[in-house]
Design a protein around this nucleic acid. Structure first.
Length: 570
RNA sequence: CGGGGCGUGGCUCAGCCUGGUAGAGCGCCUGGUUCGGGACCAGGAGGCCGGUGGUUCGAAUCCACUCGCCCCGACCA
């Protein structure tokens, strides 16, 4: 490819609308252009990279026996109504009508369609297991598209679905995917962490997310370097830091104390000269319409996910001030668990066994001293606490780290949700109708691209891994109009092409600095510069990632680069 | 949906407060000189100032509405 003939619209400055690194660089390097909020054009460079990512995905999926389909993005509403997700997806689903007024929608994922295919054709256990996948455009009407390609309304996803007769088979299909995903992300040059994820209210027993650590991400994960523990913050468990002061011993009775205008934990702590770890934080929430008081140690945060699964409620919200008043008799800041009746009280495990703590008195401007869980009030104990910086690993006490991450893949044991709702059954060995057990596995193709851009970006721009770089090498004569330089460049270019390297010949008649800057910005891993030492038969080989430069004989450079390229691709 | 910000040549932005008919840098085109990290000289093209309506003798500028985009929050099977 001749650079002069290609459409690679690099920008010297970063467009104003781009905030995150990957967005800025993909725009500047001429990979993408925006068409609307959360809608992007993928230009030549992006498409080349995305195709390479897809090819890697394809190879690894095929390697575990998965079969590639291509299903419609346009779906009849009935299919989604059957599973109940036509309702459940709410405003996140793009919906439209055809000319006859029939309801259609754009697919957000393809569990339903896959299930429809399977139930029509798969009738015997002998036809199982199956793994079907596709690489398809998905549509989601995001409430707020943002961060360039990270959160968009239309994106490419590899989604696969496994069908097994029994849970043991699902375990195998799941494990195959886990291994395949690691290979895929390794081959794409990503650094990532696989974490336990919250399985959601959709049923399903196990789920793991593949995350890339980046400030551009929106998810937090908890990892332990020593033990290898890794979990999404929503689900992570830990050992909290111990209370900073021991509880007073003895069977003391609650004692009212005047705390005028001391509302927050910090205020009460300072006023009463008691550490936050000795205060009970009382939160009033309305879960599925019913009031619940959740109790936390003063310095701890309620995990909404854990609260929700502890109660098994569909939705919840903080109580309004009037509700607190009528329920508790006081306003937020003086609420507590003592003397409550007719309200569900759940408490975090960190309060179990504690004695003589401070809690709100349910009387404005008053707190209670000497409140002992289990004696002065009864509560059901659950792990409700969100892991926080400084916590340690639950079993070993090893240090934990919280990382900001972006999700690039998710593997998920679905269970029987779709087989049950949509009637996917087969006959087993005994001729008995048995529901099929399913798994669902996704990879965000653009997010893999964003992930590597975020991970390896430097002051000069993008630094692509060889495996998914739009071009593996570029040949740059310092002066394109010099026949000797151009001739040698042409020769190296041809040699590299013959050796199977994805090579670009930067034949533009521009000053060398411009060509170097462009090549660096775009992120081409290897650059061969034909310059002043050509008369001695010497050219320069520069590596984008390391910045290393070496002088190489003209006659050997092509083979050298080809060797490095194939080594980098394994 | 709530809060904030921004829409002016391809890109980054100035001009707007205090109305008088549009500018800079970069990019682009032509010619010449250059050629190892975003060169230089000369000449040139390119903008109904997001849209609609209003105020005014006159609107990029003031007012109203509207559309779009970005950020924070809500939301995110």
């Amino acid at each position: 490819m001749l650079w002069s003939k290609l459409f690679i619209p690099t920008l010297r400055e970063s467009p104003a609308e781009a905030e995150v690194v990957s967005h800025q660089l993909l725009l500047r390097a001429g990979y993408i252009r925006q068409l609307g909020a959360g809608i992007y054009n993928y230009l030549y460079l992006a498409q080349r990279s995305l195709l390479k990512i897809q090819q890697i995905v394809r190879e690894e999926m095929n390697a575990i026996g998965a079969q590639e389909f291509l299903l419609p993005a346009l779906n009849p509403a009935e299919v989604w109504q059957e599973s109940g997700r036509y309702e459940a997806m709410g405003d996140n689903m793009f919906r439209l009508k055809d000319r006859f007024g029939r309801q259609l929608c754009l697919g957000m994922t393809h569990e339903e369609v896959m299930t429809v295919i399977a139930r029509g054709e798969v009738r015997s256990y002998k036809q199982l297991p199956q793994i079907w996948y596709q690489i398809q455009t998905k549509f989601r009407d995001e409430p707020r598209p943002k961060s360039g390609l990270l959160r968009v309304r239309q994106f490419i996803m590899k989604d696969s679905y496994s069908f097994d007769l029994a849970p043991a088979g699902l375990d195998e299909s799941y494990e195959k995917h886990r291994v395949a995903y690691c290979r895929i992300f390794d081959r794409c040059g990503l650094q990532y962490v696989a974490v336990e994820a919250h399985s959601g209210a959709m049923g399903g027993s196990q789920s793991q997310e593949f995350m890339v650590a980046t400030d551009a991400g929106e998810d937090y994960v908890v990892v332990c370097k020593e033990t290898g523990y890794a979990a999404n913050l929503e689900k992570a468990v830990s050992r909290p830091v111990p209370p900073s002061a021991a509880d007073a011993e003895g069977d003391l009775s609650p004692e009212e104390v005047h705390t005028p205008n001391q509302k927050s934990i910090d205020e009460v702590s300072a006023f009463l000269q008691v550490p936050a770890t000795s205060i009970i934080k009382s939160l009033v929430l309305i879960a599925d319409g019913k009031p619940v008081v959740a109790l936390m140690r003063g310095d701890h945060q309620l995990s909404e996910t854990k609260f929700q699964s502890a109660l098994g409620c569909a939705e919840f919200r903080p109580a309004f001030p009037e509700e607190m008043r009528s329920l508790m008799g006081a306003e937020a800041g003086s609420l507590g668990p003592v003397g409550l009746s007719g309200v569900t009280i759940i408490a975090d495990l960190a309060l179990q066994g504690r004695r003589n703590m401070v809690a709100g008195a349910n009387k404005d401007d008053y707190h209670l001293l000497n409140v002992t869980p289990g004696e002065d009030f009864a509560a059901a104990y659950h792990d409700l606490r969100q892991v926080t910086e400084g916590d340690t690993e639950l079993e070993t006490g090893a240090p934990l780290q919280i990382l900001k991450t972006m999700e690039i893949g998710h593997i998920f044991k679905l269970g029987y949700k779709y087989s049950h709702s949509m009637g996917l059954n087969v006959l087993d060995q005994n001729g008995v109708e048995t529901p099929v057990i399913m798994g669902s596995y996704g990879i965000g193709i653009e997010r893999v691209l964003c992930g590597v851009v975020e991970l390896y970006a430097d002051a000069n721009g993008i630094s692509m891994p060889v495996s998914i770089a739009p071009f593996e090498a570029v040949v740059t004569p310092v002066k394109a109009s010099d026949p000797a330089l151009a001739g040698a460049a042409q020769q190296v270019y041809q040699e590299l092409k013959q050796l199977g390297v994805d090579v670009l010949y930067d034949d533009r008649d521009l000053s060398p600095g411009v060509k170097f800057k462009d090549a660096d910005l775009v992120g081409i891993p290897y650059r061969v510069v034909i310059g002043k030492k050509l008369p001695q038969g010497i050219v320069e080989l520069a590596e984008r990632r390391t910045g290393a430069k070496s002088e190489v004989p003209l006659a050997e450079v092509a083979r050298l680069v080809a060797g490095k390229v194939s080594a980098a691709k394994q």
